[in-house]
Nucleic acid binder design. Structure first.
Length: 797
DNA sequence: TAAGGGATCGTTTTT
DNA sequence: CGATCCCTTA
C-alpha cells in the first residue's frame, strides 16, 4: 500500500542509510545548519527549511540522533506530518537508520494520531462506542445539506458548500456551536451557527466525527482533562512537526497541549521541533495559518531558530528565479536559497497562440529531450494551476503517443461507486452512521424514494430515535403516512443489512464481506446490466476495491502491528477487521498515485499537488494573469501572495531544467479568453530566461481590452514560428477578441424589448463578460433572468 | 417513484 | 464544454 516515491529524495542529498550507528556517523554528511538542527537539545526548535534544503533528512537524522546519541526511547517520540506519504517515508528512513525499534514511535498524520488517541480515550469522551465513523468532506457536506433542509434554509442563499466551509473554519478556530451563536454578527453567521448546532448534534447521534472534529475534540480532551493530558505528556517527550507552515489554529493548540508548558502538572515541557517554510504555505484557503510559523519565537520565547538555505536540488539559475519571485512578497523572513551545483541551463520560455499551441510546444520539447537522451519520460513533470487545464496536454500527448499520467483530479476513494460500497461497510460497522445509511438506502433503486425517506426522518425526529431505529419501526409498520409498498421495501432493506451484519459477526474478513455486499444488494448486478460504458469502469473500480481489501487482510495477517510497550492499548481496531480497513480508507485518501521512475511516464498535476516533489525537468504552464495568478486572487493582496508562493513552489520543484509557458488565448468553457502574461513571469529576472517564442507584435494595434502586444516580457526572442512541432503559426487561430462578441451592456432601469417576452425593465444585473445576466421584469410576461451573451433576442431601447 | 430535460455554474484540496 | 442539480412529466 505504501509505495514510496523515490524520485523525490535522491541520493545526492548525501548519505542516507548507514551501517555505522555511532553518534558521529549520524551527523555525517550534514551541513553545519543541518547538523545544528539535529544536535540541538532542550528548548523549542524552529527549522526554517527552504525548498530542497534537506528537510526530511534533518527530521529523520534528528530522530535517529535522539535514539542513537541521546538515549531517548522510541516510545517517547511523536512525529506528525500532514500526509500519509510523508509519514511512511519518515518511518521508513528512520527504520533504515536505527532498525525495527522505530516501530513503536508514533509517526503519523495529525488526523491519524487524533483517531488513535480518541479511540483509546473513548471511555473519557462519552462515546457510545470506539467504533466511530470518520466523515470526510463529502459526507460532511451531505449531512449539512440534510440539516439545512430541515431548518428550511434556502439552498440558493446558503449553499451547503458555503456552510461547510464556515463550519470548518469555526472548528479550526476551536469555536463550538454555542460560542459561534454568541459571536454571530450578521445573518449568515447566525444561520451558520444554527446549522452548526444541528449538524454537531447529528454527528454525535451518528457516532461520527468529521475531519475537523478529530483535531478539535482531541484538543478539547487534552485541555479539559489534565489527567489525560499528563499521561500523554509523560509519554511523549519529543514532538516533531513537519510542514509547520500548514498548521491551522486547532493543530497549533494541539501541539501546544501535547508539549505543555511545564507549569500544568510538574511534567517538564516536551522537546518540540517544528520544521517548515512560510514561503511554501499554499493552503491558507483550507485554514492553514502562516502566523504559526511566523510567530513561533513569540509563542515559544526560549525557541532557537535555524535556517536552512543551502539547496541540494536545483541549479542556481532556478534558485535565483525562485528567490526573485518570492522576494516580491512583503513581510516575509528573508531567505535566499543557494547551491554549489552551478548555474545550469537557462529557463526556457514559450508563448503559445492558444492552449493547443502551448501543449504542442511542451510535447515537442519533451519528445526532443527524450530523443536526445537528456531525460526520460519519468524525469519530467508538467504543472498547471487548475485541473481542467490538463485537457489540452492530454489531447496532444494522446495524439503523439507520449506516455503520461495525471495525478489528482477525481480520486479513487472519491468515486461514487467506491463511496457507495464503503458506505455499506461503514453501515455494518456503525449502525448509527446516518449519512452512510441514507446514502445507500435506495442505492441501487429498491423503491424507497424521497417520500418514504422523509416519513422515516420525521418519525425519527418525533420519537427522538436514530434514523436507523426509525427505519426498523417503519419496517414494522409503526411509521405513519408510509405506504405499504415502501414499508415492504424498507423491511426488505432492514433484513438485508441484518444479514450482512451477521457476516461481520461471524468473522468473515473485509474482502469477503465487501464481495457479498456488492452481490446481495444487487449493486454490482445493476452496473453489470447497464449498457452505459461508464458503468463498466465502475464495476472495474469495485473489483479494484475488493482487491485493496484483500491485500489489506493479507498484510494485516502477515505483518501484525508491533505491540506497544504499554498496556492501555484498548480501542485499537482488531487486525484485519472491518474497522481497521475503514480507518485506513477514510484517512488514507489514496495509497499513492504518483508514478515513480519505473513507470516511465510524464507526470501531470496541479501546482498544489506538486508540493514536496522534485523532477529533473519541470514545465510550468499557463502563466497568465487570470489563470495563474487565479482570477479570484487578482484583487486581493493576501491571496495574491499565496499565488506567488505557489509559483515559488512550482519553480523550486525543478532540478535541472525549467520551462515556463503561457497562451495568448485559451478557451474557458467554450468561450475564447485572451489572457495577459502572468505578472510572475515579469518577476523572473529577464536574463535567466531564453524565450523560444514571444508574443507577436501586431502592426495594426487593435483596440482591445487585453494587453495585446504589451510586450513586457519579451527578451531574446527571434525564432518563433518553427519552435513547436505542430505549432500552427500565429495566423491560423481565428480569435475574434471579446470586442467582436460584446456582452450586452445593461443597467438597472434600462428598458428593453425581447422577441418572446415583449417589453420589460431591468431590475437587477449580475456578473460580467460572457457570464453577465440581467433580471428583467416583463410585466405580464413575468420576471425573467437572462444571460446577455450574443444571440439573445433582446434589444436595449 | 423514476427518468429525462433544462437551467446553472464552475480554484487550489495533504486529511 | 461538462457535471450536477432541480423540476418537470410519465
Amino acid at each position: 500500500m505504501d509505495t514510496l516515491f523515490e524520485v523525490s529524495q535522491s541520493d545526492d542529498h548525501g548519505p542516507v542509510a548507514r551501517q555505522v550507528r555511532g553518534p558521529e556517523a549520524l551527523l555525517e554528511g550534514l551541513n553545519p545548519q543541518q547538523r545544528a538542527a539535529v544536535e540541538h537539545s532542550g528548548s523549542p526548535l524552529l527549522v526554517v527549511a527552504g525548498a530542497g534544503s534537506g528537510k526530511t533528512r534533518v527530521l529523520t537524522s534528528r530522530i535517529a540522533y535522539l535514539l542513537g546519541a541521546r538515549g531517548v526511547h522510541p516510545g517517547q517520540i511523536m512525529a506528525i506530518t500532514f500526509t500519509n506519504k510523508a509519514a511512511a517515508e519518515m518511518k521508513e528512513r528512520v527504520t533504515a537508520l536505527v532498525g525495527g525499534r522505530a516501530n513503536v514511535m508514533w509517526v503519523s498524520t495529525f488526523h491519524s494520531m487524533c483517531v488513535r488517541l480518541l479511540r483509546r480515550e473513548a471511555k473519557n469522551l462519552d462515546l457510545r462506542s470506539s467504533n466511530f465513523s470518520v466523515y470526510d468532506a463529502d459526507d460532511s457536506r451531505r449531512l449539512i445539506t440534510l440539516v439545512s433542509r430541515e431548518l428550511d434554509l434556502d439552498p440558493k442563499r446558503y449553499p451547503a458548500r458555503t456552510l461547510a466551509v464556515h463550519i470548518s473554519n469555526l472548528k479550526n478556530e476551536l469555536i463550538d456551536p454555542v460560542e459561534a451563536a454568541d459571536r454571530a454578527g450578521n445573518d449568515l453567521e447566525r444561520r451558520v451557527a444554527e446549522v452548526y448546532t444541528a449538524y454537531q448534534r447529528r454527528l454525535t447521534e451518528s457516532n461520527s466525527f468529521d475531519f475537523d472534529d478529530l483535531i478539535m475534540r482531541t484538543v478539547r480532551l487534552l485541555q479539559t482533562r489534565p489527567d489525560v493530558a499528563e499521561h500523554y505528556r509523560r509519554r511523549f517527550r519529543h514532538v516533531l512537526v513537519d510542514e509547520y507552515q500548514d498548521t491551522n489554529h486547532a493543530q497549533y493548540e494541539l501541539v501546544r497541549a501535547l508539549v505543555g508548558t511545564g507549569t500544568e502538572d510538574g511534567v517538564e515541557p516536551g522537546e518540540l521541533c517544528v520544521v517548515g517554510d512560510a514561503d511554501q504555505s499554499i493552503y491558507a484557503f483550507r485554514g492553514a495559518t502562516i502566523r504559526n510559523i511566523e510567530e513561533f519565537e513569540r509563542d515559544y520565547p526560549q525557541a532557537r531558530t535555524i535556517t536552512l538555505e543551502q539547496n541540494y536540488r536545483s541549479t542556481q539559475t532556478i534558485l535565483t528565479a525562485a528567490n526573485a519571485v518570492i522576494a516580491r512578497n512583503t513581510n516575509r523572513r528573508e531567505k535566499r536559497l543557494w547551491t554549489d551545483l552551478g548555474d545550469g541551463d537557462k529557463i526556457v520560455g514559450y508563448v503559445g497562440d492558444n492552449e493547443h499551441d502551448e501543449a504542442a510546444f511542451v510535447a515537442s520539447e519533451i519528445d526532443r529531450l527524450v530523443d536526445t537522451g537528456d531525460a526520460n519520460f519519468s524525469d519530467i513533470a508538467l504543472f498547471y494551476r487548475t485541473n481542467n487545464n490538463s485537457r489540452a496536454f492530454e489531447e496532444v500527448f494522446i495524439r503523439l503517443g507520449l506516455p503520461y499520467r495525471v495525478v489528482g483530479g477525481v480520486r479513487f476513494y472519491e468515486r461514487r461507486e467506491v463511496r457507495d460500497a464503503l458506505a455499506y461497510l461503514r453501515l455494518l460497522s456503525n449502525p448509527d452512521d446516518t449519512v452512510s445509511l441514507r446514502r445507500v438506502l435506495n442505492v441501487p433503486k429498491r423503491g424507497i424514494g424521497d417520500r418514504a425517506e422523509a416519513c422515516v426522518a420525521a418519525h425519527a425526529e418525533r420519537e427522538r430515535v436514530s434514523f436507523a431505529a426509525a427505519l426498523r419501526d417503519a419496517a414494522d409498520g409503526k411509521v405513519s403516512l408510509l405506504n405499504p409498498r415502501s414499508q415492504r421495501a424498507i423491511a426488505g432493506f432492514v433484513e438485508l443489512t441484518d444479514e450482512l451484519r451477521a457476516l461481520v459477526t461471524d468473522g468473515k474478513d473485509v474482502a469477503e464481506v465487501l464481495d457479498t455486499v456488492l452481490e446481495r444488494t444487487g449493486y454490482r448486478g445493476e452496473l453489470e446490466a447497464s449498457d452505459d460504458p461508464q458503468d463498466a469502469s465502475r464495476v472495474d473500480n469495485l473489483t479494484e476495491l475488493i482487491t485493496v481489501a484483500r491485500e489489506f487482510v493479507q498484510a494485516e495477517a502477515t505483518a501484525p502491528e508491533p505491540e506497544e510497550p504499554e498496556i492501555d492499548d484498548a480501542g485499537q481496531p482488531a487486525q484485519g477487521s472491518l474497522e481497521a480497513f475503514l480507518e485506513r480508507v477514510s484517512l488514507v485518501a489514496d495509497s499513492d498515485q504518483t508514478p515513480d521512475a519505473g513507470d516511465g511516464v510524464v507526470t501531470m498535476m496541479t501546482l498544489h499537488t506538486a508540493k514536496g516533489l522534485e523532477f529533473p525537468v519541470v514545465f510550468c504552464t499557463g502563466w497568465e494573469d487570470g489563470l495563474f495568478p487565479h482570477q479570484r486572487a487578482l484583487g486581493d493582496p493576501t491571496e495574491l501572495a499565496e499565488e506567488r508562493r505557489l509559483a515559488y513552489v512550482g519553480i523550486t520543484r525543478a532540478r535541472q531544467r525549467l520551462y515556463v509557458s503561457r497562451a495568448l488565448v485559451r478557451s474557458a468553457w467554450g468561450q475564447p479568453m485572451a489572457n495577459p502574461a502572468s505578472r510572475f513571469l515579469d518577476e523572473i529576472p529577464a536574463e535567466l530566461v531564453e524565450w523560444k517564442r514571444v508574443e507577436p507584435v501586431r502592426s495594426s494595434a487593435p483596440t482591445s481590452a487585453t494587453r495585446w502586444g504589451s510586450n513586457r516580457s519579451q527578451v531574446g526572442g527571434g525564432d518563433s514560428a518553427q519552435a513547436g512541432l505542430g505549432a500552427r503559426g500565429m495566423r491560423s487561430t481565428p480569435f475574434k477578441g471579446w470586442q467582436d462578441t460584446p456582452a450586452m451592456k445593461l443597467d438597472v432601469g434600462d428598458r428593453v424589448s425581447h422577441d418572446k417576452y415583449g417589453l420589460g425593465t431591468v431590475v437587477a444585473t449580475d456578473g460580467s463578460g460572457p457570464r453577465a445576466t440581467a433580471t428583467i421584469d416583463f410585466g405580464t410576461g413575468g420576471t425573467v433572468r437572462l444571460m446577455l451573451i450574443g444571440g439573445v433576442p433582446l434589444t436595449k431601447l
